[in-house]
Design a protein around this nucleic acid. Structure first.
Lengths: 184, 184
DNA sequence: ACCTGAACACCGTTCAAGT
DNA sequence: ACCTGAACACCGTTCAAGT
C-alpha cells in the first residue's frame, strides 16, 4: 500500500522530470508513469497541467537563496531560474497566471521596500521583467549551445551573459532610485 | 489551378491565425486547413513548426515602425510585439534559435551604434532582454484580464504597464551610457 | 477518498505514392 | 515540383466505474 500521494510530492517529481528531460518531456502521462499511477488519476490531485506548472514555478523561485539587498536578490533569482532546466520559461509562462502576485515580483518588492526605493511596486515589476527576459534568453541560448557545439566555449558565453546581467541590474537599480544598490 | 504556394504566403496565413485565435491554435493541421492543403504538404515548404514560427517571429518584428533614437526604437518594438496576439511569446521563444542574431537585437544594436553608445552589443542584448520580458508579461496579463474581467478597466492597466516600460527604458538607456537617450 | 479503464478530440512528423 | 493518403507515436482531459 503506497503512502498517500500528496501535491508536494507530485510537484517534486515534476520538477525532477523537468530537470532531467526538459519541459517538452513533462507530460501528464510521463509524470503519471513516474508516480506509478494512470494519467487520469492526476486530475484528482490537480486541476490541470497549467496549474501544476504554476506550482512547479513557485517551487523553482522558492529555491532561490535569500540575499541581502536588491542587486543580490536579483542575482539570486537569476541563479534559481538558470539552475533548473527550462526554469526561466516555466516561471515566465506561469508568472501572469498568478494574477499580479508572482513569487518573483514579491521577493523583489520586499527587497526594494527594505532598501527604501521610491516606488517599490513599479521597481519590482521592472526588475522582474528584466530578470525573466534575461534568464529566458540566456537559458535557451546556453541549451542551444550545449546541443549544437557551434560556438566558443560555454564558460565564456556564460561569463558574457553574467556581465550583461550585471550591467542591466546596475543601470536599473540606479535608475529606479535605490540608493544602496550599485552592482556588486 | 491554385497559384504556387510560397513561404511568404504561408507565414502570412500563420500570422493571421495567430492574431485571430492565439498561439495554441496555430497548428500545422489548422494552418494546412486554412491553406487548403493536407498537413503533410506543409513539410514540402517548411522544415518544421519551429522554423515556421521563427519566420512568423521575424515578420512580427519587421512590422515594427522605424523610429529615431534608442528609446523610440525600443518603444516601437514593444508596440509591434503587443500588436499581435501572443506576439511577445512567439518572438521570445524564437529569439534564441537565431543563434545570436535575432531581429530585435539587430534593430537595437543599430540604434545604439548610431547614438554612439559605449558598448552597443551589450546594450542591445540588455535592452532586448528587457523588452521581451516586459512584453511577454504584459501581454499575458492583458489577455488574462480580457478573459477574466477580474480587474480594473483594461485601459488603466495598459497605462500602468506603459509607465513601467518607460521607467525601465529610461533607467537602462541612462545606465548604458547612451547620451541622447533620456526617455521621451 | 483515490484510482483505473476507456474513450474523445486532438497533436507533429514521416514517407511512399500519386500527378 | 508539389501534393495526398495513411500511418506512427504521441498529447490533455473527461467520466463512468471500481475499491
Amino acid at each position: 500500500m503506497r503512502p498517500a500521494l500528496d501535491l508536494d510530492h507530485i510537484v517534486g517529481r515534476a520538477l525532477h522530470l523537468l530537470d532531467l528531460y526538459g519541459l517538452a518531456s513533462v507530460t501528464m502521462r510521463s509524470l503519471a508513469d513516474d508516480l506509478g499511477i494512470r494519467p487520469s488519476a492526476l486530475y484528482w490531485h490537480v486541476e490541470n497541467k497549467q496549474t501544476l506548472l504554476a506550482a512547479v514555478a513557485d517551487r523553482i523561485v522558492a529555491l532561490a537563496k535569500p540575499a541581502d539587498g536588491v542587486a543580490a536578490t536579483t542575482r539570486s533569482l537569476r541563479e534559481a531560474l538558470l539552475a533548473q532546466r527550462d526554469g526561466a520559461e516555466v516561471v515566465l509562462s506561469s508568472a501572469a497566471l498568478g494574477l499580479g502576485g508572482s513569487a518573483v515580483v514579491e521577493r523583489l518588492r520586499a527587497a526594494l521596500t527594505e532598501a527604501g526605493a521610491d516606488d517599490a511596486d513599479t521597481g519590482a515589476n521592472v526588475l522582474a521583467q528584466f530578470v525573466l527576459g534575461h534568464a529566458s534568453l540566456v537559458q535557451q541560448r546556453i541549451q542551444a549551445a550545449q546541443l549544437g557545439a557551434f560556438d566558443a566555449d560555454p564558460d565564456a558565453v556564460a561569463r558574457d551573459f553574467a556581465a550583461e546581467f550585471d550591467a542591466g541590474i546596475a543601470a536599473l537599480t540606479r535608475g529606479l532610485n535605490v540608493a544602496s544598490a550599485a552592482a556588486r
